Amino acid sequence: MPPTSTAEAVRTATMNDVPGVARVLGRAFANDPLPRWLFPDDDTRMARTVRLSAIVAGFGHVPRENAAVVVSPAAASRRSGPPPPGASGAAPSPVVRGAALWKPPEGAPTGAPFLVRSLPHLAALVGPRHIPEVVRYLGELAHSRPEEPHWYLSMLGTDPVARGTGVGSRLLRAGLARADSDGVPVYLETMNSANLGYFERFGFRVVRVLNDARYPSTYCLMRGSAA
């Protein structure tokens, strides 16, 4: 039975959350166009997408407090009655159900330190020969982003078992509220056209489409500040 919408409120992710964040984002995005392009092998794509999410979150966003999560109590903590024989008395850890990775207007969560730490891991994941193509694609994305100050939503994902419980919407609304309080717009990219209607319901509009046969089709969306 999927978790209900009574999961805990949005909070800032900590380094202890990185494995859960990686698991959720890996499960959410493994079959999307970008991971399919990066990791063509069906048998290893899920594991590689989880690892990529761990690199992006753990080296870039989480240490700078630019990641948010929604968690729910672990299943074991909801059991009634005494624990089974031999069970540990330690309280079970909460379960990450959704995560959002953000970049603030005043600076990037990545940069030289991130690249130095992550490049060997990225090369191992996508293969050294694929790195130049990936770098060119990332450069295209960076070139498409607005010059004006804005919040950038790098990744937003919900564990498939929590879909339909409002976790993703709660994460997105929290980020939009913060952007509105700063008086700046929000920008994101999606490579999955099925996501366009979802984001449009929150006021996003497509401002550019990257259609290059070498890369996944990419939709660039912008939402103006409500302040």
Score class of each variant (00 low, 15 high):
A74N: 15
P85H: 02
P92I: 11
F114K: 04
V96F: 05
G98F: 07
S93K: 14
H121F: 00
P92L: 09
F114G: 05
S80A: 12
A74E: 10
R97F: 00
G81K: 13
L101W: 04
R78D: 08
W102P: 05
A99E: 12
R117Y: 02
G81S: 13
A75Q: 14
A112Y: 00
V95G: 00
R78T: 15
E106H: 09
G98Q: 07
A91G: 12
A99V: 10
S93M: 13
G81R: 12
S77D: 11
L101K: 03
S118I: 01
P82Q: 10
P94N: 12
P73M: 09
G86D: 14
P109T: 15
S118C: 02
P104T: 08
P73L: 12
A87I: 00
G81V: 09
A87F: 11
P82M: 07
G107T: 11
A100R: 05
A76P: 06
A91H: 08
L115H: 06
P104D: 12
P104F: 07
S93A: 15
A74W: 04
A91T: 14
P73R: 15
A74D: 15
S80V: 11
E106M: 03
S118G: 07
P73W: 12
A112E: 03
K103Y: 01
R97E: 13
K103M: 07
G81H: 14
P113Y: 01
H121K: 09
A108D: 15
V116I: 07
E106W: 13
G107W: 02
P120G: 10
P104W: 05
P83W: 04
P105C: 11
S77M: 05
A90Q: 07
P94F: 11
S93Y: 05
S118L: 00
K103L: 01
W102G: 05
P92S: 11
A74K: 06
A99T: 09
P94S: 08
A90C: 02
V96I: 11
P94A: 10
P83H: 04
P82G: 02
W102C: 05
R79V: 14
S80M: 09
S88V: 00
P104V: 02
V95T: 13
P94Y: 11
P109S: 12
A99K: 03
A99N: 11
P94E: 11
